[in-house]
Amino acid sequence: MKRAIALTVSALSLSAAGLIGLSGTAHAQGPCGIDDLCLFQYANMNGIEWGQIDIDMCVNIGSEFNNKASSMENRGPSRMWLYDKKNCAGRAGYSAAPNSKDKTLVNNGFDNKASSVK
């Protein structure tokens, strides 16, 4: 019985681990949550959204949303950095303050450029 429960918990953990990412029309990785950095396909927080849990490590934005963010909302308590290269390479191109929104990334030169986040 303990082994069956452990296997079930492991399977659920692996399933949950793959659910961090997109919501809206596409569901490649999961919904944007309450403490996430949320990137949106269009200005004014519209269209497909991509969410990243506030963690202190670099995460590459998947090919389905790479270079497609036009607005953002940082729902978390920490500053998040967007990079225009994979693996958070080079300098951060955009800094999202804790609990902030930016209705358009056009005015700061980062529209459709996000490739990774930390």
Rank of each mutant, 00 (worst) to 15 (best):
D84P: 04
C88M: 07
L82H: 10
R91D: 05
Q52H: 13
G62E: 08
Y94I: 01
R75W: 07
K68D: 01
N60H: 04
C58F: 10
S71Y: 08
S78A: 11
M72H: 13
K86Y: 14
S63T: 11
M72F: 08
G76H: 01
I61Q: 00
G90E: 03
S78R: 09
S70Q: 12
A69G: 04
N74C: 07
P98Y: 04
E73T: 08
N60Q: 03
P98T: 00
G93H: 01
M72K: 06
S71L: 08
K86V: 13
P98Q: 01
A97P: 03
G76P: 02
N60L: 03
G93S: 08
N87Y: 15
Y94Q: 03
W81M: 13
K86R: 06
N74T: 05
I53Q: 15
D54I: 05
E73H: 08
D54C: 11
P77Q: 12
C88S: 06
V59Y: 04
Y94V: 03
W81Y: 15
N67W: 07
R79P: 06
M80G: 06
R79A: 12
A96V: 08
I61S: 04
C58G: 06
S71C: 09
I53P: 09
L82F: 14
D54W: 10
N66F: 12
S63M: 13
N67G: 14
G93V: 04
C58P: 07
M57C: 15
K86G: 02
D56H: 09
A97L: 08
Q52R: 15
R91P: 01
M57H: 13
Y83F: 10
N74G: 09
M57V: 15
C88A: 06
R75N: 15
N66D: 14
L82T: 00
Y94N: 03
I53M: 12
S95V: 09
C88N: 00
M72V: 15
G93W: 04
K85N: 13
G76D: 02
S95N: 05
I53V: 13
G62P: 06
